[in-house]
Design a protein around this nucleic acid. Structure first.
Length: 381
DNA sequence: GGAACAATAT
DNA sequence: TATATTGTTC
C-alpha cells in the first residue's frame, strides 16, 4: 500500500506537469485551430482524460501505465491510453528511446519516417537528385553551398553500390572541391583511376553513375583547352590534367565522347560557315548568340534545332549559352543533368558561363578542333 | 574512338 | 508511358 502511495505521488506530479504541458500545447494549437482542428481536439481529449484519471481513475490508470498490470483498466482506459501515450511521448520526448517496443509501431513509424526524410532532404543527396525538384530548385542555391562545402555535389547516385565505389565517393569529394583542386587532387591520379577499371570487372554490377558537375566539367574543359581541343586531347591526358581523384579514363572518355557529339551537331553548321576555324570553335555554341549574324542566320535557318538542341543539354552544352531562352525550359532540361548545382542557383548560368568563359577560351580549341574534323562527316550538312 | 546498352529525368 | 539526356560498358 504504501508503495502505492509513494509511487502515486510522483506520478501524479508528472501527470500534472504533463497536463500543464498539454494545456500549453493546446494554447499553441488553438491559434491554428482551423488548420489543426484534430490536433486541438486530440490534445483536449488527452487533457480531459488525464484530468479524469488524475482525479478519479488515476490510481488504476497510473498503475496500469507504470506497473505491468494492465488488465482491468485496459477495457476503458485502454483506448485512451493509447491515444494518451503517443501524445505523451511526444510531449515528453524523453520517452522516445525505449519503451517503444510496445507502442513502437505507432510511435516509431512516424518518427522514423520523419527522420529518414529529414536526413534525406538534408543530406545530400538528393536522392534528391532524383525527383526532388522541390528541394533542389528552390533551395538549390543554399543546398548547393552546403553540399559544396562538403563535397560538392550531390553525390551522384551511388547509393547502392558503395562498395565498389567507395573510392568514388572520396573521389567525388575531391572532384567536388574543384576550387581547391590542387589540394586534394594534386596527387590524385594515383590508383583510383586504375581502380575504377578494376572495380568494373570485379562487379558485374554497373558502376554508379558519375555525375559531371559543373566543376568537373569545368576542369574537363580546362584540360581540353590545354590539350588543344577535344579532337587532339585524349582521355588519359585529360584525366591527368583534371587531376581528379577517382576519375577514370573511361569516364573521361565517355564524357569526351558526349561532349564531341553535342558540340558537333551544332557546330558543324557553324563550322562550315566559318571557314576560319579560329573563332568558330570558341564560340561554337556561344557564337550562336554572340556571334555575328552570319552564323546565326545559318544556324537559324539550317537548324532551328541548334538553338533548341544546344541549349537544353546541360553539361555538354556548357558552353551553350542560352541563358535567356533556357530560362524557361532550360531549368528542366538543365536540371536533369546531375548538375543540379547548375540549376541550383542561377549560378548555373554563371557557372555555365563560367564554363563558357573557360569553355569559351577553351572551347575554342575543342570545338574548333572537333568541328574541323567532323565537319565533313556531319550529317546535318 | 565509337556504338550499344542502361539508368534516370522530364 | 514515351522520349530525351547522360553515363557505363563493350
Amino acid at each position: 500500500m504504501q508503495l502505492f502511495a509513494e509511487k502515486m505521488h510522483p506520478q501524479n506530479m508528472e501527470f500534472r506537469d504533463y497536463i500543464e504541458a498539454l494545456e500549453e500545447e493546446r494554447k499553441k494549437i488553438q491559434v491554428f485551430n482551423k488548420e489543426l482542428p484534430l490536433s486541438l481536439e486530440l490534445v483536449t481529449q488527452a487533457i480531459e482524460a488525464c484530468k479524469q484519471q488524475l482525479s478519479g481513475t488515476t490510481t488504476e490508470y497510473n498503475l496500469n501505465g507504470q506497473s505491468e498490470c494492465s488488465e482491468q483498466t485496459s477495457t476503458e482506459e485502454g483506448p485512451v491510453f493509447e491515444e494518451f501515450i503517443p501524445i505523451k511521448r511526444r510531449a515528453s520526448l524523453d520517452y522516445d528511446d525505449d519503451e517503444e517496443q510496445q507502442h513502437s509501431h505507432k510511435h516509431k513509424i512516424p518518427k522514423d519516417s520523419t527522420n529518414s526524410d529529414w536526413l534525406r532532404s538534408v543530406q545530400l543527396w538528393n536522392p534528391n537528385p532524383p525527383s526532388t525538384k522541390e528541394d533542389v530548385p528552390r533551395k538549390a542555391s543554399v543546398v548547393e553551398v552546403k553540399r559544396n562545402g562538403g563535397g560538392a555535389f550531390q553525390p551522384f547516385h551511388r547509393e547502392e553500390s558503395n562498395n565498389g565505389k567507395a573510392n568514388d565517393a572520396s573521389n567525388d569529394k575531391a572532384l567536388s572541391s574543384p576550387q581547391v583542386p590542387a589540394t586534394s587532387s594534386t596527387g590524385p591520379v594515383t590508383r583510383d583511376n586504375v581502380d575504377g577499371s578494376s572495380n568494373k570487372e570485379e562487379k558485374g554490377q554497373r558502376k554508379q553513375r558519375r555525375s559531371w558537375s559543373q566543376e568537373l566539367h569545368k576542369r574537363f574543359l580546362h584540360a581540353l583547352h590545354q590539350l588543344g581541343g577535344a579532337d587532339s586531347a585524349t582521355p588519359k591526358q585529360i584525366r591527368e590534367l583534371m587531376k581528379v581523384d577517382g576519375l577514370t579514363n573511361d569516364e573521361v572518355k565517355s564524357h569526351l565522347q558526349k561532349f564531341r557529339l553535342h558540340n558537333r551537331r551544332p557546330n558543324l553548321m557553324i563550322h562550315k560557315n566559318t571557314a576560319n576555324s579560329q573563332a568558330a570553335p570558341l564560340f561554337l555554341v556561344g557564337n550562336i548568340f554572340v556571334q555575328p549574324p552570319e552564323f546565326a542566320t545559318t544556324i537559324a535557318t539550317s537548324s532551328g534545332e541548334l538553338t533548341t538542341v544546344t541549349a537544353p543539354t546541360g553539361i555538354y552544352t556548357p558552353v551553350a549559352s542560352h541563358p535567356p531562352i533556357v530560362t524557361h525550359k532550360p531549368e528542366g532540361s538543365i536540371q536533369k543533368p546531375q548538375f543540379k548545382q547548375l540549376e541550383l542557383s542561377e549560378h548555373s548560368n554563371s557557372e555555365g558561363r563560367a564554363n563558357h568563359s573557360e569553355g569559351a577560351g577553351n572551347s575554342n580549341s575543342p570545338a574548333s578542333s572537333s568541328s574541323t574534323h567532323t565537319t565533313t562527316t556531319s550529317p546535318a550538312c
